[in-house]
């Protein structure tokens, strides 16, 4: 599989990353080399092997349905770039 400049642009869009136009070929080259290395995995036979998402096969623990959090809006929004009337502001969302 070969990563083209076009792929880089579409992946960067999916990841919402503005990339320097001039750096795109560079990204493509790095990605290709890294993916080429990664594809060594294909040398291993993994037929029928169950994928492993966690280091240990444990089950999810459940939390009792209780309200434990109180309003901390003021301190959370102290970190926010722009707020008004308790709302986080972003450029107009067009539906």
């Amino acid at each position: 599989m070969s990563v083209t400049a076009e792929t880089i642009v579409s992946i960067a869009h999916l990841a919402r990353l503005a990339l320097d136009e001039k750096a795109i070929p560079h990204y493509a080259e790095d990605m290709n080399r890294i993916l080429h290395w990664v594809e060594q995995m294909n040398s291993a036979d993994t037929q029928g092997i169950e994928p492993m998402a966690h280091p240990r096969d444990l089950g999810q623990r459940l939390r009792p349905d209780e309200v434990t959090e109180s309003d901390q809006r003021e301190c959370f929004q102290a970190n926010a770039p722009q707020t008004e009337a308790g709302l986080y502001l972003v450029p107009q969302v067009i539906e």
């Binding site: 722009q82 008004e84 709302l87 502001l89 450029p91 107009q92 969302v93």
Partner: peptide, 11 residues
Amino acid sequence: HEDFQGMTGID
């Protein structure tokens, strides 16, 4: 989508 200085508010 009410107008907050031309921006959208998130709750």
